Simulated scan of single mutants.
Amino acid sequence: MNPSTYADRFDGHRAMNDLIRLCSLGPRPAGSEAMERQRGIVAEAFRSHGAEVSIQEFEGVHPLSERTVRLANVVGSWRPERPDRVLIGGHGDTRPRADRERDPTRVLGPFLGANDGASGVAALMELARHLTELPGSAGVDLVMFDAEELVFDEVGDYCLGSCEFALRARNQERAGGPSYAAAVVLDMIAGREMCLTREGFGRDYAAWLTEDLWNVARNRGTSRFSDDWGHYVEDDHLPLLGIGVPAIALVDLDYPQWHTLDDRPEACDVGAIEAVGRVVLEWLGRWASLPESPGKTGLLDNENRE
């Protein structure tokens, strides 16, 4: 199967419907009842499309009350028996406060996180619909990370869920279990004006992976990926880089509604999430079709590419 044709199956309208459904739960900060309901929705979406689903439960500390917060990542695994794996992830929690609101009376309003939270998860849900037919035999994990931003006005620690995931992944590999050849994090990928730039840490420490995704985007002719250098972003790819997994973040930090109450579904665009989803799905299809992991040379430079 041609990876480009296969990737065209990613349906931006379905992904937007999932985004709207998640936002209908209301704000979904880590530890909330709404976040727990979202976990159930995502786990069922993964399971219904052929994944082996696991829930990674762990605990965090609320940065203000110092109370214990129950947290959990949702992991969907396709071809779980495969030792060499690829990870696509995104955080599901929403910021506890809309801390970029200039009006102090709005800071505590209901932050829905349509782009900053729901867009990455909605993309994972749409990707899940196509992984049973993924070309080749590579193993793929989709992960919804918890507690990426359980932070109040910069009080607290970022990326608790991906830190927990990375710790378990490292221990698993050391025990002779599977390992990750690459990871892509999806965060804020549906903004109406989105044009993704190359995030700094991924560019510096996983340059070949950055170029792989950008080459796919370039070959597809999408205008949603820019060749410009972007910001250095503290995101869920950093804990993965920290354990030696090549990882990048697709993140639109120039989103005008970032951390404001205007981060709602109407600020999101079908074309944006579809463009990113199709690039990621084509990249996955090309990767999975290779007889061996392409390594740091980049999969589109491999002589076995289609």
Rank of each mutant, 00 (worst) to 15 (best):
V151C: 06
I248G: 04
S137D: 13
S223H: 07
V245T: 04
A247K: 05
R129K: 10
E148T: 06
V279H: 01
D235K: 14
G136W: 08
G271T: 15
L167V: 12
L22K: 06
D212C: 00
T210I: 11
P27T: 00
F111L: 04
G12T: 03
M144S: 03
F58P: 07
H62A: 04
V107E: 02
Y6S: 15
I273F: 03
G202Y: 09
G295A: 02
L87V: 10
S24T: 10
M144W: 05
L71C: 13
I243C: 02
N304Y: 15
L213H: 05
W258K: 00
S32G: 05
L71Q: 08
G200D: 14
P291M: 12
P96T: 03
W229S: 15
D116G: 00
R21K: 13
D301H: 15
E59P: 06
R224C: 00
A15K: 04
K296V: 11
I88H: 04
Y6M: 15
A247H: 02
A190Y: 01
E173S: 13
G40W: 14
A72E: 09
R37H: 10
D103M: 02
S119H: 02
F111E: 00
G177H: 04
Y205A: 14
A166R: 01
R100V: 01
V279D: 01
E266Y: 02
L290E: 09
R85T: 07
D204W: 14
Y205T: 09
H130Y: 13
D8W: 14
I248N: 08
L250T: 14
I20R: 13
A249T: 14
D236A: 11
V184T: 08
T132F: 10
D93P: 02
E173F: 09
R79H: 06
T94Y: 05
P256W: 00
L134A: 07
P80G: 03
T222H: 06
A51E: 05
R129W: 13
W283H: 04
G271P: 01
P294G: 09
L142K: 09
Y205Q: 12
H91W: 00
S226Q: 02
G89L: 07
L134P: 11
A118K: 00
V61N: 07
S65R: 01
G76K: 05
L261T: 04
T222Y: 01
D228V: 08
